[in-house]
Every structure is written in C-alpha cells, then in structure tokens.
Design a protein around this nucleic acid. Sequence first.
RNA 1: GGGGAGAUACCAGAGCGGUCAAAUGGGACGGACUGUAAAUCCGUUGCUUCGGCUACGAAGGUUCGAAUCCUUCUCUCCCCA
Length: 427
Amino acid sequence: MNFVEELRWRGMLHDIMPGTEELLNKGMASGYIGFDPTADSLHVGHLTQIMTLIHFQRAGHKPYALVGGATGMVGDPSGKSAERNLLSEDVLQHNLNCVREQLKNFLDFNSGANSAEMVNNYDWFKNFTFLDFIRDVGKHITVNYMMAKDSVKKRLEGDTGMSFTEFTYQLVQGYDFYYLWKHKSCVLQMGGSDQWGNIVTGTEMIRRKEGGEAFALTTQLIKKADGTKFGKTESGAVWLDPARTSPYQFYQFWLNTTDADAKSYIRIFTLFDRHTIEAMEAEHDAAPHLRVLQKALAKDITIRVHGEAEFLKAIKSSEFLFGNAGIEFLNELNDGEVLDLFNGVPNFSVAKSEFKAGINATELLAGKSAVFPSKGEAKKMIQGGGVSVNRVKVNTPEDVYTSAQLINGKFLVVQKGKKNYFLIVAE
RNA sequence: GGGGAGAUACCAGAGCGGUCAAAUGGGACGGACUGUAAAUCCGUUGCUUCGGCUACGAAGGUUCGAAUCCUUCUCUCCCCA
C-alpha cells in the first residue's frame, strides 16, 4: 500500500495537490513537516504530524522534520484570531532543543537512504538579510496573492488587525520549502489542514522562482465526535514531556477516549494494519464495556511516547486505582512501592504534626495541600459529594483526619470526582 | 478630522439608583445512571478566619446607597470625510 492510500484509509488525508500520488509512486521522495517551538514540549495534537512522517518513512520515503527556529520568531497567523506574542530568543532556543529531542524518538535516523533528518530553518535564515529577502523572495509573490489566503483574510476582516511581521510569515515558511526543495530535493511539504495556504505559497514560490514543481498534502484536523477540541483535559493540554503530563496521566487520557473517537484514533495514532483494526472493532462492538479499542490505543501510544517500562507502570497504577483492590492493599506495600504505584499521580506533602493534632478536610485539601485551589471550592465539592479520602466519601468539610487514618502511617489517598487521584504524604 | 455606539463573571449576553455576587444560554466541574464510554437527569460555578471582603474597562465625583447618574482617561466598533 502506498503512502497516500495509507493515509486515506486511515482517514487522515484532508487535501492533496494533483500529481502528488503519481510522484510518490515513482520511487523514493523526500518530504517534510515543520514543527513550531512555541513550547518546550510537543503535545498530543502534534502526534498526527508525527504519525504522518512515520507513515511517510515506512512507505520508503525520506522524511525531514523541520524545527522552526526562524518561523518561531515570526509567529504563524494561521488559525489565530489575534496577534501572537513573540518569544524571547533564549526561550525559543530552549524550546527548540526540547522539541528536537522529542522528535528524535519517533523516526528512524539510521535506515540508509531514507533515514530521517532534522533541520532547523534558523540555519538558512540567520544570515539572510532583510534586503536580500525582499529582493530574492518577496519579489516573486504578490501582495494580492498573500492577502487572498484565509489566514490573512480572516484577520483583515476581524477587528484585531495583523502586524507586518505575521503577514510575512507565509513568505518565510514558503522560503523554507524552496530552500529544502533546492538543497535537499524535498518535493513535498505536509502539515495540518490549516497549513494548506502556507504550503501552497511554497510550491508557488518554487514555480515562480525556478519553474520547479513541488507538492502539498495536508491531514485532517483531529476533532472529537462532539465537536470539541482534541487533546485537552481538565488540567490543560496533554503533553509528551513526562514532566508535564505523567505517563500515567497520558495513558489515562487515551483510555478515556469515547467509543466514537476510539474508532478514528486507532487508525490515526497507531500503526496496526487494517485487518487488525477491523478485528478489534468487531470485538469492541461485541463487548463495548471491555474497551478493547481504548486499551489498544492507550497501550500503543504510551509505549511509543514513553517506552514499555513507563507503560507497565501506568497500567499497574491504573489497575490499582480503578480496579477492585481495596485500599487495604496498600498496607502490604512498603513506602517505596506505594510511591511507585502513585507515580504520575499528583502528590502533596503535609507535615505529620498536622495529623497528630487532627486536621479538618478543607484545611487539609485546600490549605495544607493544593488538591483544591481554594477552601470555598473544597467545601462546595465536599458538600456535592465529590470528594473521597481513602475511598471513603468525605461527609462534611469539618471531617477531621488524624494519624489513625494514615496508611502505613504516612499516606492518604484523595479522590476528586471519580477519576482524579491525589496522594498526600505525611512527612 | 466630524458624528454615533459600546466595554458586565471562562465565553456570549441581560441588568440601567437600593431586594445585584449580578437573569439567561453555553462551557467547565461534581452527583446519579454506566463500561474510568455516550446520551439523559440533578447540583455547583468570586474569596473568606462566615463577621465580612473584593468585584461590572481605569481613575475620580454625586448620593444614606452606584454595574446603574456625572467628569476625565484608555480601548473597541460603526457611519461620514
């Protein structure tokens, strides 16, 4: 199966320039996707692009992952309704290094002719002067053409306006494509559907500047079945960096996928072939409560992002927290084992003396720890019946906790709602 | 440059001198149901030492009392030139 067919049956393909498929069928080609270093970690939203590059490489082509050291300094207006704040150079540099390290985990950089490569557009922009740029690049693209782009049009129609800097963005990205086409024989740029305009500016620039031919392909924007944004949880974005989103939380995020979404995600975020996926779906439809799809999905992605060992830990924690094992089970573990089990669960330490004296629920959960941001909120949630300590519902905000309740003389397991666990450690 | 409209909680949007911590809808969170699903129903949605405190673009003022009236400022939108 070729690359485009692969994306097609997986439901990832959004738009493709005529001739792209024919070109790829002729043999190994080079293509790239750009990643903007807007934060020091990628998040699950970037996984679609990562998977696209993986498929590209598996189909025998040569993938380039571009990190936008230069474009990141400008700010992509696509999909943004307001002007973006510029990042300072050192923050950008830091982000860039982090993102680059993450990307390294997903592609094969040592597979002969089609080894993946990493490039940074800052390398070819740092010595490019403004005058050279407007003469060599700007001259080939009309302002009329640039203004016709959706990303620009929306901002011109809107009320926030757009700076010259952001307006220029598409030229900068377009030049990336030209540069890679010229120097790396890169004939295809891929990206999310919001990147179509920017990518086409690149192919246009290649044509007008050198009469060359280059292609574009975009992937579907991932949305949940209910139309809300993908990749967000109560506590914000789901990051690939374990310091920001623990492997346990990461695993839980995927495990909690709804049935409707699981069927599309399993195609997009895993490499299982069509037969395997269809078989899993049949199994899932026959016994949906077993959540075959969610488990396979969560396992596959967690392993790809965090590795087998972290996945096993996440499973172990999940099985304990959501399984049948009573809280007494913890008594059989030593401190290290308990901490290990709760690895990835937010934890707070509270002085042991507080428990000797006895501490009431609100003070414990909102004062001495940060399970809740304020005492008012802790109270409300307790009164609404949404808080448990050691699997026992907290009845009133005045419930008192003493050393007697500490598991192993040290731990308290707090639940906010059904799914959010916290560990309080008395020290 | 001239004229007009507006700025309210996460968002949209009512309120136009006291009974307003502020209608309503959405979102978010919690509860019930369930499969750690969806749908549905219900509740919560400024902080608090529970005395109060801080809030309706910002700063002043009038008043016993202001989100509501006045002045200045900042920003946004619309029309004319």
